[in-house]
Design a protein around this nucleic acid. Structure first.
Lengths: 355, 355
DNA sequence: GCTGTGCGTGCAAAGGATTGCACGTACGGC
DNA sequence: GCCGTACGTGCAATCCTTTGCACGCACAGC
């Protein structure tokens, strides 16, 4: 059916070995024969059978990519970058969506391991011990998660949280809430750690509002804790949570940012489309994806991997419309000094009034 | 390194052939031996080497998925559904993003063809003749595109456009604009055909506003044509275009839906998050993805494929906030009879006024 | 002119699973 | 009690490519 290396060899009047060498180690074969072979190979449309090659070399030419939920807008651009970078290195990408199921993650990794040369695990939900098992199956790079001995790409949570809190503090906020993501999410823990550290340094009051699904619905669910907490600004686990929260607040008659400031994380496309446009901590997921592939290719090259590389990518605050100075008379900042204050509005408790 | 079929065979005291049969055609081997083999295989953690299997069977266990831009929110849920459905059939998915480049499509398909058992081409931009070349490389299913002799999954554009125009006509609109997508997009042509047909049937005036990029930026770019056209309602190529258009309109002081109605297509997640929430023609991309895999597996099974199956999926109009009756005195509907009319607002030409 | 070196090429093994064919055993039927 | 059948199992070929080893030839050096 398909044209094999032997077909090319016969056509060129050489042995299959020579054809193989002409294609992979060109300087080991006579220039004249090489040219003839290459021309014929092209002309016959020869494409090496990767299964056969894989059988002998032990390499597949594929990379695995495991992630919890492709429908989460955080991932597509990461996946896209991974795919592009892998393609540049002549590798293909096998994708696996585990649907936020930690059990499916290990199973998926095991199923994938045999037919990829290395794997990228994005925001894995599995526990550390399982992570080690997974990494033992082959070269592995983690994205959005840190683990001893496993190469990782993460965003600098501490500096990110520093930027967020600096911005809010500059606006005059003193009491800030954090609406966390899933309990099993490493990012939640990491961001909380950063927030705790920095808010203590700056003398800000930090209220943990709870754990919510990493979706707009999760954000809606957070609205009661937010309103009861008395905070003047909320840092949401991600932009979807922030958007859901804003929607729910609007329905309660709370104006963002006049009555309450909201900060998202990730800077997904939606963040710039909603009203108010979201102030958010931008994560360059495309950079993360590209870096992950580069690191993976490196560790795939050198067997021993002297020490697991850890890459810390910068996050950058994008200030848009969802943050403003706290309302005068707000619970969080009673009688605070002047400043570029927005037109005052009634705050909590909320009452229905003209739009 | 890894445990092979021979290892299992030795452990069980049988030949590799028997192990192979125990795993693939269980009723051809003695129940007792079968049990022993299965237990040992599980215990040793045996995973068949797919390269070796592929070499002999000619099948890879992979499906290819080619699409123009994963960053477009239309695709992720489709990809997710494809992946899930493929996984159920014990196949993996090789994804390829062509970055809206028609030339990259054919190249990508060619590169993928050798290592997949079948391919799903989503919204391909390539021309019909290239499409035939691509389909000749192996079992192929088209999504969002129709071609003779190639199995296709499409959404029912005509009925979709009928719903859209019925909704707008019911509201009282008589002059409707269409902001098309890329010229090479099959969907643009198809939707336009539907709009022309139905608007003629219903005696509506249809204005083609041009071709725009399938993004929010494309929608922004459409704002001038829209304002100059004198239409009272716009059907956008997709939700992103609709969102971009709404944003640009708002900046010009045009209120949606009071001054102008906008209808999107696709019902991506964003459609329900922006202000105003978008009235849009919902496409169940997850259903399309699942169906595509099912059809592909079918055509992969039967060699001859009696006739290429064509699946027409229903689209369903979701009415939200971006559509309303045309403003009284609007160019499109001068002195139209009463009805549930919104509070009147000045229309074009636009002038800055209080929010 | 003979030996040594090096380059270009071919031979053959290896990699792991599948599968047609054939063999052997055991049992049923007459 | 013998033959035929059927079932369970093993043998060996096959898929295609890569690669270590060896061969042969030509040319340079002494």
């Amino acid at each position: 059916m398909a044209v094999t290396i032997t077909d090319v060899a016969h056509a060129a009047g050489v042995s299959p070995s020579t054809v193989s060498r002409a294609l992979s180690v060109p300087d080991k074969v006579d220039p004249a024969t090489r040219e003839r072979i290459l021309r014929l190979a092209r002309h016959l449309g020869y494409q090496p059978n990767r299964a056969a090659r894989s059988l002998i070399t032990g390499r597949t030419g594929n990379l695995g990519l495991v992630l919890p939920d492709l429908a989460n807008p955080f991932f597509p651009s990461l996946v896209k970058a991974v795919q592009q970078q892998a393609h540049r290195a002549d590798h293909h990408v096998l994708m696996m969506d585990t649907d936020e199921d930690p059990a499916a993650e290990l199973a998926g990794v095991a199923a994938l391991a045999r037919q990829v040369d290395g794997m990228i695990l994005c925001s894995p939900r599995m526990r550390a011990v399982e992570l080690r098992q997974a990494a033992a199956l082959g070269p592995t790079v983690l994205v959005n998660r840190l683990a001893r001995q496993i190469p990782s790409i993460v965003f600098d949570s501490r500096d990110g949280m520093r930027q967020v809190l600096a911005h809010l503090a500059d606006l005059g906020h003193e009491h800030i809430g954090f609406a966390g993501g899933p309990r099993s999410s490493w990012s939640t823990a990491e961001r909380l750690r950063g927030l705790r550290l920095i808010s203590e340094q700056r003398g800000l009051e930090l209220t943990e509002l709870g754990n919510f699904a990493p979706t707009a619905a999760g954000g809606r669910a957070a609205v009661d804790s937010v309103l009861l907490s008395g905070v003047t600004a909320v840092v949401a686990y991600n932009d979807l949570v922030a958007v859901g929260l804003c929607r729910a607040l609007a329905e309660r008659g709370v104006d963002v940012p006049a009555d309450l400031s909201v900060v998202g994380i990730d800077d997904i496309m939606v963040a710039d489309m909603v009203r108010p446009r979201l102030t958010t901590l931008a994560m360059r997921t495309d950079v993360a994806g590209r870096t992950a592939v580069e690191v993976l290719l490196t560790v795939m090259g050198h067997r021993p991997a002297a020490r697991a590389p850890q890459v810390n990518l910068p996050a950058e605050l994008v200030v848009r419309e969802s943050t403003a100075p706290p309302a005068a008379g707000s619970a969080g900042a009673p009688g605070r000094p002047a400043g570029p204050v927005h037109p005052t509005r009634p705050v909590f408790p909320i009452q229905e009034e003209e739009p």
